[in-house]
């Protein structure tokens, strides 16, 4: 049987998770399913936009299946939705109950601090991963139906990247919440890092001389390798996973050291 705290975490997060899962599934289905009707007008749209604007938007082309998926699901909205979901749920592991004063009862369970933090993270991390895997599941179904001409392994590589990206930011959000116990700080810090690194990734393609900045951006490791055209890039994905793991571990250690509910 799973630990009581893990089950409790899932029960309390139930509604939130269902909401985000439904949102992400519908979003992916609608956008990818729209490809058939979109093809016709895409030529016009693409001609209307200069190439460097397309670059900034993270869009190589709009007509090919890879270009379309990149533009619709992977460049902005998909990561945005999933990161919001991940940060919301991660904030609920420690910061939200701590601010609500509910930590005293939650921590009345007989667990060490590290086990407590670990179980909270494991519970939230599991559902976050499931939600982040939904685009993968949806695309593997929708792409054959719509008849997009793209290797499924390339799609899988991009979808795995999405999960790795979400893990990376889940780790950052967890570290912030475990260290501070403040929900606002979790949202502000993680949001600021996401926006800044997204822009760093986007601008490094457009602006001359700042090419190196991309190496600092999780978004580069996620999509900068162009997985929809080039397939799997395990090294880049490992970087994201490593950042997530290190920040999460740091969060557990810091939580073990500080005063709770001050």
């Amino acid at each position: 049987m799973l630990p009581a705290l893990v089950r409790k975490t899932w029960r309390d997060d139930r509604r939130t998770v269902i909401g985000w899962a439904a949102g992400v599934a519908v979003f992916t289905t609608v956008y990818s399913g729209f490809y058939a009707s979109f093809q016709g007008v895409a030529d016009v749209k693409q001609d209307a936009l200069p190439q460097n604007v397309l670059d900034f938007l993270g869009v190589a082309d709009l007509i090919s299946p890879a270009g379309y998926l990149q533009a619709s699901v992977f460049s902005l909205l998909g990561p945005l939705l999933l990161l919001m979901c991940a940060v919301t749920l991660t904030a609920r592991t420690i910061a939200v109950p701590e601010e609500a004063g509910a930590m005293e009862l939650l921590m009345a369970v007989p667990l060490s601090r590290t086990t407590f933090a670990g179980q909270r993270l494991a519970a939230a991390g599991t559902v976050i991963t499931l939600v982040a895997a939904l685009p993968w599941a949806v695309l593997l179904i929708v792409i054959p139906i719509v008849g997009m001409d793209i290797p499924l392994s390339h799609v899988s590589a991009a979808c795995a990247g999405l999960i790795a990206l979400v893990w990376c930011f889940t780790g950052i959000a967890f570290l912030t919440g475990a260290a501070t116990g403040r929900r606002g700080t979790v949202l502000a810090v993680t949001g600021a890092i996401a926006v800044a690194t997204y822009m760093a990734h986007a601008l490094s393609d457009v602006v001359d001389g700042v090419h190196w900045v991309r190496w600092l951006s999780p978004f580069h490791y996620f999509i900068g390798t162009d997985p929809l055209h080039t397939g799997w890039h395990p090294a880049e994905l490992s970087v994201l996973v490593a950042v997530g793991a290190v920040t999460a571990a740091a969060g557990v250690l810091l939580f073990d050291r500080r005063d709770v509910g001050v």
């Binding site: 409790k8 029960r11 609500a100 005293e104």
Partner: peptide, 24 residues
């Protein structure tokens, strides 16, 4: 701190400011 897990099994604690986790 060190024995938190075994200790809390043998302690009943009522916080001064009660707030319950979850809405169940």
């Amino acid at each position: 701190r060190r024995d938190r897990a075994s200790l809390h099994r043998r302690i009943g604690y009522l916080p001064g400011e009660l707030a319950f986790p979850g809405r169940g």
